[in-house]
């Protein structure tokens, strides 16, 4: 495997800090597709939030999306715009996928990274909020207004109900109708309901079948079967003896017999 090509970018929280961190920028990431213009930024310190990162990278081109993630795999793009029920934030050191609208922006972003130039996370207009102020702010933010929350819930539930209803209708409409190859889907409804297709049900069915097969089998017809079962028995005894020996050894080693 070739060495990972990496671009580095020096960032510092604000003017009072000295050391800072180095962001690593990659244009080559797992499962890369040709038609997307995306870079992967890793080693993002925990206090750097989406706004900060947006500000750092927006100068290079239009950012279509910016997603934090903990694993290197690109997160699925389901937007959660809910104000009251946001997805859980990514904690600790993280990485981010930044999608631009064109290749030039990607190249520009990568070139931007030089070790000797220092970028500040905190600017005049938007200060980095960390520590105590952040926790206080979070506390206040987590006090929802029940009326607005109820409105959001009603909206969501209406949508959800509609979706479920539609799915049901489609399913009902397709019931009993064979597909192109002539197969009919068995559902749990109707006159002749099937078992629901869950993992638990399937293992149960398999176990039953195995049991049935075993009952039919005859074990002592041929001489070799008897011989083998005897051999098996002795092997089992030996195995058990070894296990017992091991147990006693463990007991002895853990000083189970020492009174003082």
């Amino acid at each position: 495997m070739s060495k990972i090509e990496v671009f580095q970018m020096k960032i510092v929280a604000d003017k009072s800090c000295t050391t800072g961190h180095t962001l690593f920028l990659h244009d080559n990431y797992p499962n890369k597709k040709d038609d997307e213009y995306c870079i992967l930024v890793t080693n993002i310190p925990p206090y750097c939030d989406e706004h900060c990162l947006h500000r750092l990278f927006e100068g290079c081109g239009k950012i279509l999306s910016l997603k934090f993630t903990k694993q290197a795999r690109k997160p699925k793009t389901t937007e959660n715009t809910s104000k009251f029920f946001p997805s859980a934030p990514v904690e600790g050191f993280k990485m981010a996928y930044i999608t631009y609208d064109c290749t030039e922006a990607v190249e520009k972003a990568l070139k931007k990274s030089k070790l000797d130039e220092i970028h500040y996370l905190s600017s005049e207009s938007t200060k980095l909020i960390t520590g105590l102020r952040k926790w206080c702010l979070d506390y206040v933010r987590n006090q929802p207004d029940p009326v607005k929350m109820q409105m959001e819930i009603d909206e969501y539930m209406a949508e959800f109900d509609a979706k479920v209803k539609k799915e049901q209708e489609v399913e009902l409409a397709n019931e009993g109708i064979p597909d192109e190859e002539g197969w009919v889907k068995v559902t749990t409804r109707g006159r002749n309901p099937g078992v629901s297709r869950t993992e638990a049900n399937q293992t149960r069915i398999r176990r039953k079948e195995k049991q049935k097969r075993k009952e039919k089998e005859m074990l002592s017809i041929y001489k070799y079967q008897v011989r083998e079962s005897k051999r098996e028995q002795i092997a089992n005894l030996r195995k058990k003896f070894e296990e017992d020996k091991l147990k006693i050894k463990n007991l002895k080693e853990s000083r189970k017999f020492r009174p003082f």
Binding site: A13, H21, Y29, T42, N43, R133
Partner: peptide
């Protein structure tokens, strides 16, 4: 890709740096 809180050395390996970590402690608990 998962390496974090570290600096990249010329030989291609990464090491964490104490001054960096201590500064983070300070920033996170401002």
């Amino acid at each position: 890709l998962l390496s974090s809180c570290c600096v990249l050395q010329p030989d291609g390996k990464v090491v964490p740096e104490v001054s960096m970590i201590l500064e983070d402690f300070k920033i996170m608990g401002q």
